[in-house]
Design a binder for these strands. Structure first.
Lengths: 102, 102
DNA sequence: ATTTTATATGAGTGTGTACTCATATGTCAA
DNA sequence: TTGACATATGAGTACACACTCATATAAAAT
């Protein structure tokens, strides 16, 4: 027998986690940047004019949340968006925000 | 002449604001609760087993962000979701989160 | 082997924010 | 008018978290 009310609250917590991914300026810019294709850490840092350390910290979070994948290429580490769910949700939020100017 | 790069960053900031609305457990439960129809403050607080004060504070934020509308009915204040954009984004995030268990 | 380059990460700091508590405001009932 | 109820709100607190700085790790170049 399941506790459906509890299940629902767990689902809400998962949804909160998902939305939290997108609710930071640096993280969202990383996602937007990777939208156009894979990039190495330093390129991301340069593009966003943010320190390598700050970017690495955020990339770790994004890795832990399975939002991005990483692969080594010599000294560099190349990051990419993991799945299309992420792209889809980003795009919907972005469209709404730009259309409506909340 | 427009600074398109700057415009884009502003749009990203707006998107962050939008996603922040959904990235708190109490706020998301309020939104989910109002999904099924308007409710007064005390009913929301009771349903979510959260203090009236905490709910009122969050409702103020949601009002300021034009996520919910409020109307007085005697001593009570009845809250409702403002527009369908909110419903749509919540639903998409919720589906993704429950399907994928990120 | 040593140095240089690319990335990761722990510790510490500052800021934002969700809550509690106390109290103000507003509305109805008696 | 006074009291009870419903909601709002300011102040204070505790915690989360995004950053910096210093340093570790790892691979390439010399």
């Amino acid at each position: 027998m399941h506790d459906h009310k509890h299940d629902k609250l767990v689902d809400i917590q998962e949804t909160v986690k998902l939305f939290k991914i997108f609710s930071d300026y640096t993280r969202l810019r990383i996602i937007e940047l990777l939208y156009s294709g894979e990039k190495c850490v330093q390129d991301i840092a340069d593009s966003l004019e943010t320190s390598q350390s700050a970017i690495s910290h955020q990339l770790k979070l994004l890795r832990d949340m399975n939002v991005v994948s990483a692969r080594k290429d010599g000294k560099q580490v190349i990051y990419n968006l993991q799945d299309n769910h992420i792209k889809e949700i980003f795009l919907i939020g972005y469209s709404h925000a730009t259309e409506c100017k909340i």
